[in-house]
Design a protein around this nucleic acid. Structure first.
Length: 303
RNA sequence: GGUACCUUGACCGAGCGGUUAGGUAGCGGUCUGCAAAACCGUGUACGGCGGUUCGAAUCCGCCAGGUACCU
């Protein structure tokens, strides 16, 4: 008997939430969230997290489980979701993962290489060294320490260089030695359902959603988390702009316009990523019955 | 009515006789441990009409629009 994981994905603001609830109800499963920012509690409005009512309707996992200062990664997510899936599949044939965080979805579907977790000490040391010694010095160091990765790395991207060095200093082994590019086989089927709509339509929804978020109290929410503004969890569209407003640098109107733009940019990046995945079955979010029929047909053939 | 200053690509913005300014957005792309992150590629525009010049976004004249001050 085959187990099937349904993955509902799509750009931010496309309209995943309502469909995910319906699919969950159809399958009788909880929802495993695949949105890297909805993982954090205290950010319900700006991340458009499922509401209390929605969570009462369908049980959600991986929503609001992290504190703003917590360290988290796609690899941890992979481990935790796979654990949860094991539990789900123990008494059900289906599971549902929904969200738009591309790397997180890939981590669950394809796996991520086993790379040592970086200790705080190494992380802060490298961060400081990047600032004091500069980009070029660290890039040169990477060339010495890990010529293989240096040859293929995006050398202009600080995150890539710093991380490769972090891994080296953490483990004593070059970063490239951990990279296998191997897709892991999962003990279940995966059916990916993508939601998308014409870009003008998507952008229109994003624009008005920002207005709505502010009406629902985004400013107050940002005010509340302001003390944590330097945490990675708040290097997030919707918050970084509001902090500029709260700091008196921008007007509210300007900050909102920035949020709209940055959200649009994010949506485009998501679509670029998803475009490579030929396994995705695409639907317009309004094609409600079609989507549910598709899920139902996959559900019956897979069991 | 007069005087002065301004007018650059979707937007912001440099340029002061002869090189692609640059930034943001847009469009396209990268991505295996902070990913709603980080990074990369991509645009010959100078309000209109004349003139000066080998050559004008850059100088001159007129016109249009704008801003400031004056009567």
């Amino acid at each position: 008997m085959g187990k099937t994981l349904f993955v509902l994905l799509g750009p931010t603001g496309v309209g995943k939430t309502e469909r995910s609830l319906q699919i969950a109800e159809l399958l009788g499963t909880p929802i495993l969230n695949a949105d890297s920012r909805q993982l954090f509690r205290d950010l319900p409005i700006g991340t458009a997290a499922p509401t209390a009512e929605q969570q009462a309707r369908v049980k959600h996992h991986f929503v609001g489980t992290l504190g703003l200062e917590d360290y988290y990664s796609a690899a941890q997510y992979e481990v935790e979701v796979l654990q949860q899936l094991e539990e789900e599949f123990a008494h059900r044939d289906h599971a549902l993962l929904t969200g738009g965080s591309m790397l997180y979805i890939d981590a669950v579907c394809k796996g991520i290489d086993d790379i040592p977790t970086i200790s705080d000490a190494v992380r802060t040391t490298l961060k400081a060294r990047y600032e004091t010694e500069g980009h070029d010095r660290l890039a040169q160091e990477l060339q010495l320490v890990d010529p293989d990765y240096y040859a293929i790395a995006d050398l202009r991207n600080p995150k890539r260089i710093v991380h490769a060095l972090e891994v080296y200093y953490e483990s004593g082994r070059p970063y490239s030695s951990f990279r296998t590019a191997m897709h892991r086989q999962r003990p279940f089927h995966i059916v990916k359902i993508g939601l998308n709509r014409p870009r003008p339509e998507l952008f229109e929804r994003i624009n008005s959603r920002v207005t709505q978020m502010v009406a629902e109290g985004l400013v107050e929410e940002a005010q509340r988390v302001l003390p944590f503004r330097h945490c990675n969890s708040l290097n997030t569209v919707g918050y970084k702009e509001m902090f500029r407003y709260l700091n008196g640098e921008w007007t509210l109107e300007f900050a909102m316009e920035k949020i709209r733009r940055n959200t649009r940019v994010y949506a485009k990046k998501q679509l670029t990523w998803f475009a490579h995945d030929e396994a995705i079955h695409w639907f317009h979010p309004d094609a409600e019955q079609e989507i549910l029929d598709f899920v139902a047909s996959c559900a019956t053939t897979s069991t």
